[in-house]
Design a protein around this nucleic acid. Structure first.
Length: 314
DNA sequence: AACCAGGTCTCAG
DNA sequence: CTGAGACATGGT
């Protein structure tokens, strides 16, 4: 018997975005014109169905009363970061300086950055080096398929198998050849993910401790970049998407492009050295404000990809 | 057919 | 500290 919970959200238009669905494990809200989107995932070992009933509300189906010991409704309010006012990510000064952009961003007020599982986020972004979203998604899907646990869920009429994201101890002991296949045949990446998983399984690295909101971002970055395969960008992504640090501002190839194109930040050089990365980040935070720069940056990221690069929705 | 994808590491200068 | 090359493969 499925327990059916309903969540209503502000008066924003909201739709599930599939573009950022790396795995079926993680996703984001987005504005869109169609309704009725349905999304399935495995959270805390349980199959979860999330459905858009109308532009203003979602419904969540899950067999449990609680996820991670938190009542389901409250969990999803946290998961979808409903505590964040997405209509004030960009202030009046920003709107005055960039009126056209501010207008375009209005449509994205439904875009929500999720508070996702730290380990899942870490592995997912370790899979995201210099390749397209489709390959990233495939890697994470394969990791779940081969190393996660299967759960079944009634999706409308049919019975679809879902797979949980594997625990650190599982990837820590994974068969190297199979792990490499799941990592786009990149043995270096597979090795790095295995090594990071081993450190976590052994307790040498504690992502829970890194979730402490009082930690300075620089300290989080220092801890994460100590791992092979994690540089500034991925460390900041883990902080933003996996540690709930909406003040973390990752700079990838798209962000670098819009910083230059829209805001004339860092226009004259190319290549992202560590020094330049920190410089661009400082300028971006100056522009977007300290506390939610990463959240705002994600709105800009999405706006750039959809309205300037004309990339597909998923 | 090139070139770009949610980069990072290594190694030379 | 900076720059070039390797890593790998699907999309446009």
């Amino acid at each position: 018997m499925m327990i059916y919970q309903s969540i209503e959200i502000n008066k924003n238009r909201l739709i599930l975005v599939k573009e950022t669905l790396f795995s079926g494990q993680s996703f984001m809200w987005n504005e869109s014109d169609h309704e009725g989107g349905i999304y399935s995932s495995v959270i805390d070992g349980s199959p979860v169905l999330i459905k858009q009933d109308n532009p203003y509300s979602l419904s969540v189906s899950v067999k449990k009363n609680e996820l991670f010991g938190i009542p389901v409704r409250r969990f999803f309010e946290h998961y979808f970061s409903l505590d964040i006012a997405t209509n004030s990510l960009f202030d009046d000064e920003f709107a005055a300086r960039y009126p056209d952009l501010a207008f375009r961003l209005l449509k994205l007020q439904g875009l929500r950055v999720l508070r996702q599982d730290p380990y899942e986020t870490l592995v997912t972004f370790m899979c995201a080096q210099g390749i397209g979203m489709s390959i990233i998604r495939r890697q994470v899907n394969m990791l779940c398929r081969y190393f996660g646990n299967e759960v079944r869920v009634a999706d409308g009429g049919r019975d679809t198998p879902l797979y949980s994201f594997p625990a650190p101890s599982v990837l820590a002991d994974a068969d190297p050849a199979l792990l490499r296949r799941c990592c786009n045949n990149n043995s270096m990446r597979a090795g790095n993910i295995g090594e990071a998983s081993r450190l976590l399984a052994l307790g040498r690295l504690d992502l829970q401790a890194l979730s402490d909101p009082s930690l300075p971002l620089s300290e989080i970055r220092t801890e994460l970049t100590a791992l092979k395969g994690i540089g500034f960008k991925i460390a900041d992504c883990i902080a933003l998407f996996g540690l709930g640090r909406f003040d973390a501002f990752p700079i990838d190839t798209h962000v670098e492009q819009f910083l230059s194109s829209w805001f004339s930040i860092g226009a004259h050089q190319k290549g992202l050295s560590q020094k330049r990365y920190l410089h661009l980040q400082e300028k971006a935070v100056e522009l977007l404000g300290e506390s939610l720069s990463g959240y705002a940056g994600h709105h800009l990221f999405h706006c750039w990809r959809t309205t300037e690069k004309n990339m597909k929705a998923f």
